[in-house]
Design a protein around this nucleic acid. Structure first.
Length: 726
DNA sequence: CTGGGTGCAGTTTTT
DNA sequence: CTGCACCCAG
């Protein structure tokens, strides 16, 4: 029924048609107990994780239903699932004895997804009939319900005094309700994700007590709304694990109906947060603690959402203190991605900073990357340097065009331009986008699209406003200029298309008339979200259907609007005192709450397809987006920024003394802001296969190693090689 | 190449 | 308010 480890390795190698290196084999074949795989960029960590999972199933005879495999994003989970299925298919073709195995019972997904499934599956009482809120919906609840409670309790001054960094530089008297809502949301999330002890907060008094009281109000609001947010989901799951039902989940029911959970594999462990760490350690509490964690401590990018590399760096001591065993550690160092000059450069870069050589910053004993490929003929790491950004941008675009005309690349999608922010503004992608346009190079930049300016959104919102507030009489002086501008822009957009779409115009006018004809406090039909759906059932919206972008954008809008309506009341009523007018408080909520959220936070376009970049286009993306990807020619720009701390750094530090389980590894804000900035550059630089080209202005280059993380810790003296002109 | 002044714009993102 | 791009003077 099973195969040997050697057969498995041979099978994987035959499928890939290239051999695995020795550390990859070691990682795949390691037996029972905790395993830490420290995998540098391009070392095949996903391959190893998939193979190790197959080893459990095909060699050790572990029931697939006893294995849990988690990753960080939905997209990564999907790709893991695909690769596992593909590899298993190949293996069972080679080894017929595997045919009896059904790998579909394996639990693969994001931790959030799996926790949600399991809690539903076990009908966990505290999680029954709860609606899982996305970030926007949770903001709306805080804006609507929690803000006022916190204000009534008089907690704002204490909270502002302690958490002023969450408000930029705004003085307290200038803060809007949304400023508070977003700040509170960050605090609440952090309290849960860092497993902060509420009792300890209470006893500390002052701002800490205020935070604890505010968090209670949020909990109350969630209970009232029968809802949970992402962080609370994990909290529920963590609690569940210590209940009787949780014991059944962990140990099985003995009858074989519920299988015990015996093997856990975690990808991207460097981005794990404390509550996730606690879940993983609890899942593997039974000996022999079969947990495999994979990641690269040098590529941690997600501190802003609670991830702390310290979980990964501190994994060996955590195993030691929880279970009294040290994990086996395997380093994957053979880089199969980049030309050896780039590998050398990356090794130099990451080690050139004294900050990275402090203890407990990187995993102990981590060797440098080892290039599996040789170097090419052309310079692999080079510099485009001009005095101004637009000149840099022109040279990048020129070089891209030249690469294409000289046949060095076949398609622009073999390249990428990496930036911290891909927004279309002069500070960010702006100059580059114009330069590409001038060279007639088509650009793929999903993050530069501005959702709210899209015609279909504007037309739909404009039509809705013309129904509920036809004279725009509730857009008063108190509404902030930016919200007003957004809303009036929508109405304009609708007005200009109304004549060309008489059916829609008629529906809108009739709707408005119907409201106008009602007396005070009359119910308006249909239900509020339905009005939006009816608008969308007319032209031009019907004609938009079938375009995936547009569909997705509109469905995002309707989902958010529904959630707004469930908070602010539906159906609509006419006002108590003004006949023929929608309730003024509702309109206030609509403009300040709903439109305010859209204005302040914006909405992102989803990139729906699996393709990284469509053929023929030159991709422009954020470094975050590029994580896990590779490109032949990598251009990196927006370099040279001063290293600075984020809200996440401060919240993490402020709440650390109150954590249920204090972290084993701690760094000061001054240090960790450097670590994070260096890691971000490292991710960017290590994407390149054939060539890495830095695009910098002389001004940016003037900053020395002690001012910016962009150019290495020795004052950037090793960035010498100018890119040759073709 | 560097010091210093002016004017303007204003992160990253996943569940 | 801060920090970056850009400009000018030496």
């Amino acid at each position: 029924m099973t195969i040997t480890n050697d057969e498995l390795i041979a099978g994987i190698e035959a499928k890939n048609s290239f051999p695995l290196d020795q550390s990859q084999k070691d990682a795949i074949a390691f037996g029972a107990g905790p395993l830490l795989i420290a995998a540098g960029p391009g070392t095949g960590k996903t391959e190893v994780l998939v193979a190790r999972c197959l080893k459990f199933i095909c060699c050790d005879g572990v029931e697939p239903g006893s294995i849990m495999l988690t990753t960080f994003t939905e997209k990564a989970a999907q790709s893991l699932q695909d690769r596992l299925a593909e590899a298993f298919l190949a293996l069972s073709g080679m080894y017929p004895q595997l045919a009896a195995i059904d790998p579909s019972a394996l639990r693969i997904g994001t931790l959030h997804g799996l926790c949600n499934d399991i809690l539903q599956e076990y009908r966990y009482t505290a999680y029954q009939n709860l609606r899982l809120l996305d970030e926007a919906e949770s903001s709306l609840i805080i804006h609507k319900a929690v803000h006022k409670k916190v204000d009534d309790l008089g907690l704002f001054p204490a909270l502002y005094a302690q958490f002023d960094y969450l408000f930029g530089n705004k003085p307290q008297n200038k803060l809007s309700k949304w400023d508070w809502a977003f700040a509170l949301q960050q605090m609440f999330g952090r309290v849960v994700e860092d497993m902060v002890d509420r009792n300890a907060l209470q006893q500390a008094g002052g701002a800490w007590l205020a935070l604890s009281q505010a968090s209670d109000e949020y909990d109350q609001a969630l209970t009232t709304a029968h809802a949970s947010d992402f962080a609370k989901l994990l909290e529920h799951f963590r609690t569940f694990l210590d209940t009787g039902q949780g014991t059944v989940f962990l140990d099985g029911d003995g009858s074989g109906v519920r299988l015990p959970l015996t093997h856990v594999l975690v990808d991207e462990y460097q981005d794990t947060n404390p509550i996730q760490e606690s879940i993983y350690l609890r899942l593997c509490q039974s000996a022999p603690h079969n947990i495999t964690v994979v990641g690269d401590d040098d590529q941690a990018l997600y501190r802003f959402r609670g991830g702390t590399v310290e979980c990964m760096v501190g994994f060996p001591p955590a195993c030691q203190s929880h279970w009294g065993v040290a994990p086996h550690v395997v380093y994957l160092t053979d880089n199969h991605r980049s030309n050896s000059d780039i590998v050398d450069w990356c090794n130099d870069y990451i080690t050139s900073f004294p900050q990275m050589n402090q203890p407990d910053v990187r995993i102990a004993g981590k060797p440098p990357l080892n290039a599996a490929h040789g170097s090419g003929q052309h310079p692999a790491v080079s510099l485009i340097r001009e005095t101004k950004i637009d000149a840099c941008a022109n040279r990048v675009a020129q070089l891209a065009a030249d690469l294409k005309t000289h046949g060095i690349i076949e398609d622009y999608s073999q390249c990428v331009l990496l930036l911290r922010s891909a927004k279309n503004s002069p500070r960010n992608a702006g100059h580059y986008l114009t330069a590409f346009e001038n060279q007639n190079i088509p650009v793929y930049n999903p993050r530069s699209k501005d959702y709210l300016q899209k015609a279909e959104i504007a037309q739909c919102m404009g039509a809705f406003i013309r129904i509920v507030d036809p004279q725009l009489s509730n857009i008063n002086a108190n509404l902030s200029p930016s919200i007003k501008k957004l809303v009036l822009g929508w109405v304009d957009e609708y007005d200009t298309i109304a004549a060309a779409h008489p059916d829609l115009a008629q529906y809108v006018t009739r709707g408005a008339q119907e409201i106008a004809s009602k007396g005070v406090d009359q119910r308006i039909t249909p239900a509020t979200p339905t009005i939006l759906y009816r608008i969308l059932s007319h032209e031009p919206f019907v004609g938009y259907q079938g375009s995936p972008d547009t569909d997705l954008r509109l469905s995002k809008l309707t989902r958010l609007f529904e959630s707004f309506c469930s908070q602010y009341g539906r159906p609509l009523y006419t006002d108590d005192t003004n006949a023929g007018c929608v309730r003024v408080p509702w309109l206030g909520g609509f403009y300040y709450g709903f439109c305010g959220y859209l204005e302040k936070k914006g909405i992102d376009d989803d990139d729906e397809d699996e393709v990284v970049c469509p053929a023929g286009f030159f991709p422009v993306m954020t470094i975050h987006q590029s994580k896990g990807l590779e490109f032949d020619f990598v251009f990196v720009a927006t370099l040279g920024q001063t290293v600075s701390s984020s809200n996440a750094h401060h919240l993490e530090e402020d709440l650390r003394p109150f954590r249920v389980s204090p972290p084993g590894v701690v760094h000061s804000i001054d240090d960790s802001q450097w670590h994070d900035d260096i890691r971000q550059h490292y991710v960017a630089y290590s994407r390149a296969k054939h060539a890495l080209i830095l695009s910098v202005t002389t001004g940016q280059l003037r900053k020395k190693g002690h001012e910016t993380a962009s150019f290495g810790g020795q004052g950037g003296t090793w960035v010498k090689q100018n890119v040759p002109r073709l």
